Amino acid sequence: MHSSLSLHNKTSAAQAPERIIKFSNGSLVPKAAELRHAEAVEMDIESLDRFEQAADAVRAIFAEAKLSTPPLLLLINICLADSSREATQRFEKLIGHGSRIHLSHTWYVGTEEGLRGLVDDLRVLGIGDGVSYRTVETAARELAGQRAEQAPLPTHRKP
């Protein structure tokens, strides 16, 4: 269950999509019957720089099914606190910097004001048609199996 949804277009909250297809790098391609009734696609990707590549894949799936692509929503996992330092400490405790959960999903760790700024930037840049949010508590619960494997951060070695 996601805590909220923000659409970039002029759609009012009353018109927010109810039938949302979830898409991630590891998800199976939905059947045409599932796609037909989709009002939006929620994209759970590992980073913002992968959005356009993932969006192209989603558009191709809908095109192959001869359907128009519904709005594409970027799922952002959020860890909010009164200060960035507090949010970072909370994130480290619940998720862990460099964990598989951290590296496999898009995260915002900081303040509510900073999150609003990020969403405004996404709107200006035209990244997706909207944003959906998953709180750090929900993400930790839903993605718990991924935390067991810690993915090491890349290191740079001198030749």
Rank of each mutant, 00 (worst) to 15 (best):
H2R: 06
S3A: 11
S4T: 06
L5V: 13
H8A: 10
N9M: 05
S12I: 03
S12A: 09
A13P: 02
E18G: 13
I20C: 01
S24R: 08
S24E: 03
N25G: 13
S27Y: 05
V29H: 02
K31E: 15
K31Q: 15
K31W: 10
A32R: 14
A33F: 11
A33W: 05
E34V: 11
L35F: 09
R36G: 03
R36E: 11
H37A: 08
A38H: 07
A38P: 12
A38K: 01
A40C: 12
D44V: 00
L48A: 08
R50W: 07
E52H: 07
Q53N: 06
Q53A: 07
A57E: 10
A57F: 02
A57V: 12
R59L: 05
E64D: 15
A65N: 06
A65M: 01
A65E: 01
L67C: 13
L67T: 11
T69H: 05
T69P: 08
P71V: 13
L73Q: 04
L73C: 10
I76E: 03
I78C: 10
L80W: 11
A81E: 03
S83A: 14
S83H: 13
T88Q: 15
F91W: 07
H97A: 07
S104C: 12
T106W: 00
Y108L: 11
E113C: 02
E113Q: 13
G114D: 10
G114Y: 01
L115S: 08
R116P: 00
L118V: 15
V119M: 09
D120N: 13
L125A: 15
L125D: 13
G126N: 02
I127G: 10
I127H: 06
I127P: 12
G128H: 10
G128N: 11
G130Y: 08
G130E: 01
V131L: 04
T135C: 07
T135V: 01
E137W: 05
A139D: 00
R141W: 06
E142R: 03
L143M: 11
L143E: 08
A144W: 03
G145F: 06
Q146F: 04
Q150F: 07
Q150C: 03
A151D: 04
P154K: 06
R157C: 00
K158G: 01
P159H: 12
